[in-house]
Deep mutational scan, measured.
Amino acid sequence: MATGGRRGAAAAPLLVAVAALLLGAAGHLYPGEVCPGMDIRNNLTRLHELENCSVIEGHLQILLMFKTRPEDFRDLSFPKLIMITDYLLLFRVYGLESLKDLFPNLTVIRGSRLFFNYALVIFEMVHLKELGLYNLMNITRGSVRIEKNNELCYLATIDWSRILDSVEDNYIVLNKDDNEECGDICPGTAKGKTNCPATVINGQFVERCWTHSHCQKVCPTICKSHGCTAEGLCCHSECLGNCSQPDDPTKCVACRNFYLDGRCVETCPPPYYHFQDWRCVNFSFCQDLHHKCKNSRRQGCHQYVIHNNKCIPECPSGYTMNSSNLLCTPCLGPCPKVCHLLEGEKTIDSVTSAQELRGCTVINGSLIINIRGGNNLAAELEANLGLIEEISGYLKIRRSYALVSLSFFRKLRLIRGETLEIGNYSFYALDNQNLRQLWDWSKHNLTITQGKLFFHYNPKLCLSEIHKMEEVSGTKGRQERNDIALKTNGDQASCENELLKFSYIRTSFDKI
C-alpha cells in the first residue's frame, strides 16, 4: 500500500482533458527560462521544448504516446526543470519506465491550478516501474492521483506527508504495488545497510526511497516546507523545498512566496507586481503582455491589467481597466465587458449561442446573426445582446428569417469595421425574408467608422429604411451602385405612401 494514499474509496472516473512563447529569463536562482504550460502528445517531438525550461508557468501534460519505446527515452533528460506552477499529468506514455532521468531536479509542483483537485496525476502508464522524482520536495496545493499503472512499484516507500501538507485526498490505487509483488529495495538494503531515512506512518517504520538508488530526502521537522541542505541544516524561511546553503534567500532552489532578481522575498516591493503567484514583474512586463494579447485571437491570451499590486489576466467583477495605466478602477454604474472572439468572429444561430455573449459591452471581433427560429426570440436576444455598444469588426445579418427588427441591439452605437466582410463591408444584410426595420432612427444613433453597407434580398425592408441608415451611420456616399439592390429590397412591402385627393359631386333626387 502506498504510504499516505487512500484505498478502496469510491472515486469519480478520471477524465483526461485534452506555445513556446518565453516569458522571460528567471535569473540567477533558476538555471534556465520560464516556459508556458505545455500539452505534449502523440510523439516526442515537442518534448524537446523543455530543454531550457527551469519553470513551467502553467501545467505540463505528457500523454497518448503509443509508439514510443524505452530506448526512445534513454537520452532524454531535462535537468534544468525545477518547478511547475500548476500540475504534472502523465497518461498512456508507452515505453517510459521512470522519471528519474527525465526530470531529475523537479523540486516543486505548486498546484496553482489543479487537474480535478490533483497536482500530480500518473494514470495508465503501462510501462512505468517507478516514479523516480527523487528531488520532489513540495506539492504546495492539491493532491496526488496514481492509478492503474500495472508495473509501478516504489510507492509504499514514499512518505507523501513530507511532500504535501495533507495526504487525506491522495488516491493511489490499482498499481502493481497493490499486489505486494514489488519487493522494493532501498539503497544499501541488499548489503544489509540502512542508507535512507525511515519514518513512521500508520504504525509502520519504513525506509523512504524513490528507487533502488535514490533515497527520499527527509528534512528535520523544524525546517517545515522550506527544505534543508545535504547536511540537514534548514533553508531560509522564504525558500521552498530545498537550498544549497542554509538561511540564505539567494540560495533557495525555489521560493515559498515570490522570486525577485535572484532572491526569494515575502512580497513584491514597489515598483514590482505579483505575477502568477510566484514571481515579481515590473510595469513594462505587464504592459507588454497586455499589448501582445490586445489584437491576438490565441486562446488563453489575456490583456493583463494591474489590481491590488498584482498583474492579473482581467479586472475583477465591479472594476474596469483604465487604459492609460492598466489599473483596475471601480465602475460607475454597470461595468464594461470586452469579449474577445477566439477566431475573430462568432455566429449567433440560437439563443444558446447568444447567451455566451451575455453582459458583453464591447465585441472584439465580428458578429454573424443567422437565426431561423426560436421561442420568445426578441426578448431572449435583447437579454443577451442588448448591452453590446461596440463591435470592432463587422455585423452580418444573414438568412435570419425569424427577425423582424434589429432593435434587440438596443445599445449598439459603434461598428468600427477594423475587419470587413469580403474585404469591403462593415454591415452586411443578406436574404432576411421578414426583416422590416433596422432601428427606430428617431431614437437610435449608430456610427460606422469604416467599410460599406450591403443589402440584398431583404424583400420587406424598404429602401427608405436603408437610406436612413446611410445618413445616420455616416456611410452615405461610400456605397457603390450594386451594394444596395434596388429590386430585391422592399419588393414585397408597401414602401411608397402617396396622399390621394378626392373630389365629389353631391346629387339628390331633384338636383344634379
Score class of each variant (00 low, 15 high):
L29S: 07
L29T: 14
P31K: 08
E33H: 09
V34R: 03
C35E: 00
C35W: 00
G37V: 15
G37P: 06
M38I: 10
D39Q: 15
D39V: 15
D39P: 01
N42F: 11
N42H: 09
T45E: 15
R46L: 07
L47S: 04
H48R: 02
H48I: 06
E49C: 05
L50G: 02
L50E: 01
C53W: 00
E57Y: 09
E57V: 08
G58N: 00
G58W: 00
H59G: 06
H59P: 08
L60C: 02
L60F: 02
L64M: 13
M65R: 02
F66N: 01
F66I: 15
K67H: 01
T68R: 13
T68I: 04
R69I: 13
R69V: 07
P70T: 10
P70I: 07
F73L: 07
R74K: 13
R74L: 02
R74D: 07
D75H: 05
D75T: 08
L76E: 01
K80Y: 04
L81I: 00
L81P: 00
I82K: 05
I82W: 15
M83Y: 03
I84G: 00
T85N: 03
D86Y: 01
Y87I: 00
Y87A: 02
L88F: 09
L88W: 01
L90H: 00
G95S: 05
E97S: 05
L99N: 00
D101G: 05
L102T: 02
F103W: 03
P104M: 01
N105A: 05
T107W: 06
V108R: 04
V108H: 10
I109E: 00
G111P: 00
G111N: 00
R113G: 12
R113T: 10
Y118H: 08
A119M: 00
A119F: 00
L120N: 01
L120F: 00
I122L: 10
I122W: 00
E124N: 12
E124H: 10
V126A: 15
H127F: 05
L128A: 08
K129Q: 11
K129N: 09
E130W: 04
L131V: 12
L131Q: 02
G132Y: 01
Y134L: 09
L136V: 08
M137E: 11
G142P: 00
G142W: 00
S143Y: 02
V144H: 01
R145M: 05
R145K: 13
E147P: 01
N149F: 02
N149E: 00
N149K: 01
N150D: 04
N150H: 07
N150W: 09
E151W: 09
L152P: 00
L152I: 11
C153S: 15
L155A: 06
L155G: 13
L155C: 12
A156M: 10
I158A: 10
D159C: 07
D159W: 15
D159V: 07
W160D: 01
S161K: 09
I163S: 01
L164E: 01
D165S: 05
D165A: 06
D169S: 05
D169E: 14
N170K: 05
D178K: 07
N179H: 12
N179K: 15
N179F: 07
E180H: 00
C182I: 06
C182K: 14
G183T: 07
G183Q: 09
D184S: 12
D184I: 05
D184V: 13
I185C: 05
I185Q: 11
C186R: 02
P187R: 03
P187D: 07
P187L: 12
G188T: 06
G188I: 14
T189R: 10
A190V: 10
A190W: 12
G192C: 14
K193A: 05
K193I: 03
T194H: 14
T194W: 13
N195G: 05
T199K: 09
V200R: 10
I201M: 12
N202H: 14
G203K: 11
V206C: 00
E207Q: 13
E207P: 15
R208Q: 15
R208K: 14
R208V: 00
C209A: 12
C209M: 02
W210Y: 13
W210I: 13
H214C: 14
K217Q: 05
K217R: 10
P220W: 00
P220T: 13
T221P: 09
I222G: 14
C223Y: 02
C223P: 01
K224C: 05
G227P: 13
G227R: 03
C228M: 03
T229K: 06
T229F: 07
T229N: 15
A230W: 10
E231N: 06
E231P: 14
L233M: 08
C234P: 07
C234R: 01
C234E: 02
S237D: 14
S237P: 12
S237A: 12
E238W: 07
E238S: 08
E238G: 05
C239S: 00
L240Y: 13
L240A: 07
L240V: 07
C243D: 04
C243H: 00
Q245G: 15
Q245R: 13
D247N: 05
D248F: 02
K251L: 08
K251S: 06
V253D: 14
V253L: 15
A254S: 04
A254K: 03
A254T: 02
C255M: 01
N257Q: 12
F258V: 07
D261F: 05
D261G: 12
G262L: 03
C264R: 00
V265G: 03
T267A: 14
P270M: 04
P270F: 07
P270Y: 10
F275K: 02
D277T: 05
D277H: 14
D277P: 02
D277I: 04
W278M: 00
C280K: 01
V281S: 02
V281L: 03
V281P: 00
F283K: 09
S284T: 08
Q287N: 08
Q287H: 15
D288Y: 09
D288E: 09
D288T: 04
L289R: 11
L289C: 07
H290T: 14
C293Q: 01
K294P: 08
R297A: 13
G300V: 08
H302Q: 14
V305Y: 04
H307M: 14
N308V: 12
K310Y: 05
C311I: 05
C311K: 02
C315S: 07
S317G: 07
Y319R: 09
Y319S: 06
T320S: 04
T320C: 13
T320V: 08
M321S: 03
S323C: 07
S323Y: 14
S324Q: 11
L326W: 05
L326E: 14
C328R: 02
C328A: 03
C328P: 02
C328G: 02
C328K: 03
T329A: 06
L332N: 15
L332C: 07
G333W: 04
G333Q: 11
P334Q: 08
C335S: 06
C335G: 06
